[in-house]
Design a protein around this nucleic acid. Sequence first.
DNA 1: ACGGCCTTGTGAAGGTATGCACAAAGTTGA
DNA 2: TCAACTTTGTGCATACCTTCACAAGGCCGT
Lengths: 224, 224
Amino acid sequence: MSTEAASRRGVPDATVARLPGYLRALTAFVDRGITSVSSEELATAAGVSPAKLRKDLSHLGSYGVRGVGYDVARLAEEITDVLGLARDWPVAIVGMGNLGRALAAYRGFATRGFKVVAVLDHDARLVGLRTAGHTVQPMSALPRLVADEGLAIGVIATPPGSAQLVADQLVAAGVRSILNFAPQVLSVPPGVDVRKVDLATELQILAFLAQQRDLETGAEAEVS
Amino acid sequence: MSTEAASRRGVPDATVARLPGYLRALTAFVDRGITSVSSEELATAAGVSPAKLRKDLSHLGSYGVRGVGYDVARLAEEITDVLGLARDWPVAIVGMGNLGRALAAYRGFATRGFKVVAVLDHDARLVGLRTAGHTVQPMSALPRLVADEGLAIGVIATPPGSAQLVADQLVAAGVRSILNFAPQVLSVPPGVDVRKVDLATELQILAFLAQQRDLETGAEAEVS
DNA sequence: ACGGCCTTGTGAAGGTATGCACAAAGTTGA
DNA sequence: TCAACTTTGTGCATACCTTCACAAGGCCGT
């Protein structure tokens, strides 16, 4: 894939991608007052197999007790630590269209280690408007946000045509983590991480699976 | 068109996940009036390596010409066909909160093989309201939508607490493809496909990568 | 007609991820 | 104290994915 592929700190990429799910399941157990879980219970709650869960957790160290299971609070803290969520990460959302406003209003940030410190838009007509408790700022505010607020993560919620420009501006300001909602491949220098969330891609994969299902069902019907 | 069923069944998951990206890049080439591309050009536009692209396309059959490249229109048509996008898939969006409304207003559906045939909400107070050209319908409308409109894909944009219930209702009505935006593991019977889009998970993965970067930079500084 | 030049398609190799099965290790109860 | 029980952690085998390197194959100029 990108620059440094494989595993960092010995934790495989596939495992890292599942850790947030484990953390969410653990948080739910905490809320229900459950203090200890087996790999089977946690795996079910997270939607994976017990073997996979144990293998994943083994990459973080030994935090379970044989014959008993895992201490919910301790494991949650360990995963929080590994993911780097012990502190809050300042996030800025760029692009105040429908999606940008919905993201700005999303309440899930605060409880999961993130804090929206600013919302921005390239369009001067939107600058100054208030939405979801934030005043829309111009792109020129980026350097100050990085310097004063420690802005570390940029969320791109613009139309695809503006996404690369916004990415360039984020990178120029010193942001090195980007979450891109625009259906557009971004080119960024080494040392900058980009992750992509794409509705159309997911739907198209579902369409493929659905068609596959229909074809196979038809084939079976023919055989029998 | 000739070797359909046989070759498509063997398309690896990882390849299927990249096909939408190739299709998008090809569409962009069509718009620019370009009729032929090499694996190198297409790979760059899609953000993958040329070798990976060629291997992926080889799973669909031989649609390139050695020494020349790929015919843009023909390859786009082939991928459209493999993904099952030759026809439009009827989609319903459930949950008219901020995210649901943003999704309902998203214009990318129509051009990519999907058609929003209905938006629904469990809350009776929202039923009847108009948003983005649709009238919000109650959940009880689902069976009719499946029967009359051929509804095939359900998008869940509800709070996590309602997601499982909505999934159950979708499945009961006959929907077998679900795109879940709620941070909640869904349990569905065999034969139903669920894909998940989760903002918080993606941000947490970015946080992990950012922390690794910081740690490694620090470590290098110590060494030198 | 044909040799030179390109780019595809693909075997082979290496690397990752997954699932199985069981030994290791801790707990519980008598 | 100790034996029986439970569940973790992990070695191994397998499947999957990616990358490399090059032979196969088609076009173009002469």
